[in-house]
Amino acid sequence: MSLIETIVHGHVTELRLARAPVNALNPALCNELAAALAAALANGAQGIVLSGGPKVFSAGLDVPHLLSLGDDQAALQEAWTAFFDAARALLNCPVPVAAALAGHAPAGGCVLALCCDYRVMAEGPYRIGLNETQVGLAAPEGIQSLMARVVGRHRSERLLVAGAMPDASEALRIGLVDELTGIDDVATRARVWVEELLQLPRKPMLETRRIARADAVDCLRAERIDLPRFVAAWMEPDTQAGLRAMLARIGK
């Protein structure tokens, strides 16, 4: 069974994360996302909507899976590489991408959303953010810059250091998301935004977008992620304890 549902809406293709129950980002899901994006482009998609499940867009990286790898640093690096490859595929996409967030988007879910051009989120008690410090991790410099690009450096510092997860209304106020709508209309509103861009003269729109997003693409350069260092930090006892405590709190 595919972990990505592909739904074609004319010139816009919706890629829906479909790994129940919360679209935890394991290597299989990340690899399928990158492959589905490439396939959509090969089939002529002029715009992309990335959506997820109701109430949870994506709960982020599959922490139980990562913990099950123990101290196998090669396997850990492979798992994190799959995630960053999927994120880079979104950032490097040559056509507009809108994220449809019909629920929570913590950690890795937030990163995927930040890699999109535009973010539509469901109204209500849903939260989005990079909560890494709350489980004993430091977000890589490139990820921090990706957040700062969207909300500004000072506000990004406050959010990242605290591991804060603003709710939907606050996320809209600070620019972390671009639009709020009813939970059942999130994917439709994301598609409408893409379709409006597609009404513009195509080449100038795409070239302007490419130039404007060059700094976002730069954020995920390998040197700015420093994956070996990040994986080593993942193995630190404090981090492992924080992750296991988080799983205990949510009953995993």
Rank of each mutant, 00 (worst) to 15 (best):
S2T: 14
I4T: 01
T6A: 09
T6W: 05
H9D: 14
G10Y: 06
E14I: 08
R16A: 07
A20Y: 08
L25V: 03
P27A: 10
L29K: 03
L33C: 05
A34D: 09
L37I: 12
L37W: 11
A38P: 09
A38D: 14
L41H: 15
L41K: 13
N43D: 15
N43W: 07
G44Y: 11
G44L: 13
Q46G: 13
Q46F: 10
I48F: 07
I48L: 13
I48N: 05
S51G: 06
S51V: 00
G52N: 00
G53E: 10
V56Q: 03
A59V: 13
V63G: 03
S68L: 09
G70A: 03
A75G: 02
L76G: 04
W80E: 09
A82D: 08
F83C: 01
F83I: 01
D85L: 11
R88K: 14
L91D: 07
L91Y: 02
N92F: 14
C93K: 08
P96R: 05
A98R: 06
A100G: 04
A100I: 06
G103Q: 01
G108L: 00
G109W: 04
V111Y: 03
V111L: 11
L112V: 07
R119E: 03
A122L: 01
P125F: 10
I128Q: 01
N131F: 13
E132Q: 12
E132I: 05
V135R: 10
V135W: 04
G136M: 08
A138Q: 10
P140M: 05
G142I: 10
I143T: 09
Q144W: 01
S145V: 01
L146H: 06
M147E: 02
R149H: 15
G152C: 05
R153P: 08
R155K: 13
S156F: 11
R158T: 15
R158N: 13
A162C: 10
G163L: 06
D167C: 09
D167N: 11
S169M: 11
S169F: 09
G175D: 08
L176T: 03
V177K: 01
V177D: 00
T181G: 03
G182F: 02
I183C: 00
D185W: 01
A187R: 07
A187Y: 06
A187D: 01
A190R: 00
L198C: 05
Q199I: 07
R202E: 15
R202A: 14
P204C: 03
M205D: 02
T208P: 02
R209F: 10
R210L: 14
I211R: 13
A212W: 09
R213W: 15
R213M: 12
D215I: 08
D218K: 15
C219K: 02
I225S: 05
L227C: 11
P228Y: 09
P228Q: 03
R229T: 13
F230H: 09
F230P: 04
D238E: 15
G242Q: 04
M246Q: 13
R249N: 11
I250H: 11
K252F: 09
